[in-house]
């Protein structure tokens, strides 16, 4: 195929990718209760409705999701740092197997993760709560954190840490003064990415959240009531804008990290 027709194809593909998202703001500002064409004229009432006192269930689910996503981001990034550091810097027995197990959730149908955790939590008497959602989310976010942090740690020339050690710093001070500042952008983008994944995750939260729904679980319940849909569209619009901002931030951090390490950019995350 020539470059020209490939380019046309690529633009058509982008339209396919963005079509659903482009509809979001259209219906969020559409003054009609039915999500369908033709459009009825503009309004901002769905956004007002979002923030109205009536929507307490929604507000609670947003708070739940923010709590879950923040804690998940911290824990999965911490676990990711350990695993990525171990995998890039050390050789140990059964390394492939161990890393394979840790990365497994990446290729496991989410429903399997969800039901297996559900069985365990129900049968060891732990019950289900936001904490069980967090446990599930940490499990699926850690592989993403590892993927991001791996490249940060790999970009780190081991001689740089040895140089600090050679110039008189202890192992811990070397980590604090050299390693941490150099991988910090990776850590921040890992926090942001795991936060975003957790915020959007539905299946595990659906199975494990018990009486406190997260935002996606709440959204799911709302999708059944047609009259609530325009509000959902408004909420979706806000979420999309937020995700894009977070992503731009994460990408900027990643590039900043590369530049600081004096490296050429080799592509996006994942």
């Amino acid at each position: 195929m020539s470059g020209r027709s490939l380019r046309i194809y690529a633009f058509v593909y982008l339209v396919f990718l963005y079509a659903p998202i482009a509809l979001l703001p259209i219906f969020a500002f559409n003054d009609g209760t039915i999500i369908a064409f033709p459009l009825q004229g503009g309004t901002t009432r769905w956004f007002t409705e979002l923030f109205a006192a009536r929507s307490t269930a929604l507000h609670e689910s947003v708070i739940n999701s923010l709590i879950v996503a923040s804690i998940t981001a911290v824990f999965s990034t911490l676990l990711g740092i350990c695993a990525a550091r171990a995998a890039t810097r050390y050789r140990f027995p059964a390394q492939r197997g161990i890393m394979g197990l840790i990365m497994l959730p990446l290729v496991l149908p989410e429903i399997i993760v969800a039901v297996s955790l559900l069985i365990v939590f129900m049968n060891v008497g732990l019950g289900i709560s936001l904490w069980t959602v967090i446990m599930g989310h940490v499990l699926i976010c850690t592989p993403f954190c590892i993927a991001i942090l791996n490249s940060s740690f790999q970009n780190l020339d081991p001689a740089i840490e040895e140089a600090a050690h050679d110039l008189g710093e202890t192992q811990w001070n070397t980590f604090r003064l050299i390693t941490l500042p150099l991988v910090m952008p990776g850590i921040i983008s890992s926090l942001l990415i795991s936060f975003t994944i957790s915020l959007d995750e539905f299946i595990i939260a659906f199975f494990l959240s018990g009486t406190d729904p997260t935002l996606p679980v709440y959204l799911w319940s709302q999708l059944r009531f047609p009259q609530r849909l325009p509000v959902v569209m408004a909420l979706g619009t806000i979420l999309v804008v937020l995700s894009i901002l977070i992503l731009i931030l994460a990408e900027t951090m990643r590039r900043y990290g590369l530049r600081r390490a004096g490296l050429k950019d080799k592509g996006g995350f994942l």
């Binding site: 020339d157 001689a159 740089i160 040895e162 140089a163 600090a164 050690h165 050679d166 110039l167 008189g168 710093e169 202890t170 050299i178 500042p181 150099l182 600081r260 390490a261 004096g262």
Partner: peptide, 20 residues
């Protein structure tokens, strides 16, 4: 005696200049 307490210093092949 660990590397940080030896009376030696090293010039690394990659120079290992702290990039930040």
């Amino acid at each position: 005696v660990p590397a940080n307490r030896r009376p030696t210093n090293m010039v690394f092949q990659s120079y290992a200049i702290f990039p930040h």
